[in-house]
Simulated scan of single mutants.
Amino acid sequence: MNKFVVAVDGPAGSGKSSVSKQVARQLGFGYLDTGAAYRALAWAVLNLPNFKGLDLANADLGREFDYSISLDPDHYSVSVAGHDVTAAIRESQVAEYVSQVAKLPNVRAFMKLLTQRLVASASQSGVVVEGRDITTVVLPEAQLRILMTASEAVRLNRRAAELSEVSAASLKRQVSERDASDSSVVDFMTPAPGVQLVDSTDLNFNQTVSAVLALVDQRKPKETNE
Results as ranks from 00 to 15, higher is better:
149 T>E: 14
19 V>I: 15
96 E>Y: 00
171 L>E: 14
202 D>A: 02
23 V>F: 07
62 G>F: 00
102 A>E: 06
93 Q>P: 09
26 Q>V: 04
79 S>Y: 01
126 G>I: 10
26 Q>C: 10
50 N>G: 08
31 Y>M: 02
18 S>H: 02
173 R>H: 08
221 P>K: 03
60 D>F: 05
118 L>V: 12
194 G>P: 12
164 S>G: 11
103 K>G: 01
129 V>M: 09
179 D>K: 02
158 R>M: 03
79 S>N: 13
22 Q>S: 14
168 A>T: 12
55 D>F: 04
176 S>C: 09
126 G>L: 07
41 L>W: 04
69 I>P: 14
6 V>F: 02
39 R>H: 02
30 G>D: 08
129 V>P: 08
161 A>C: 05
85 V>R: 08
150 A>T: 05
94 V>T: 08
10 G>R: 07
25 R>D: 15
112 K>W: 08
140 P>R: 04
25 R>N: 13
154 V>D: 03
175 V>C: 06
178 R>G: 01
48 L>H: 07
47 N>Q: 09
108 R>D: 13
178 R>D: 08
191 P>Q: 09
159 R>N: 07
145 R>K: 14
94 V>C: 01
81 A>R: 03
154 V>C: 04
181 S>K: 02
167 S>C: 02
15 G>V: 09
95 A>P: 13
222 K>Q: 14
130 E>H: 10
41 L>H: 07
4 F>I: 11
199 D>S: 11
197 L>A: 10
1 M>T: 13
3 K>P: 12
36 A>W: 03
47 N>P: 13
200 S>T: 15
219 R>I: 12
37 A>P: 15
62 G>Q: 07
34 T>K: 06
83 H>T: 01
5 V>I: 15
207 Q>M: 06
195 V>I: 05
186 V>W: 14
37 A>C: 09
194 G>K: 05
107 V>Y: 08
1 M>Q: 13
124 Q>R: 12
25 R>M: 05
158 R>H: 13
37 A>L: 14
138 V>T: 15
187 D>K: 05
103 K>Q: 08
16 K>V: 09
175 V>G: 12
179 D>V: 00
100 Q>E: 12
221 P>E: 10
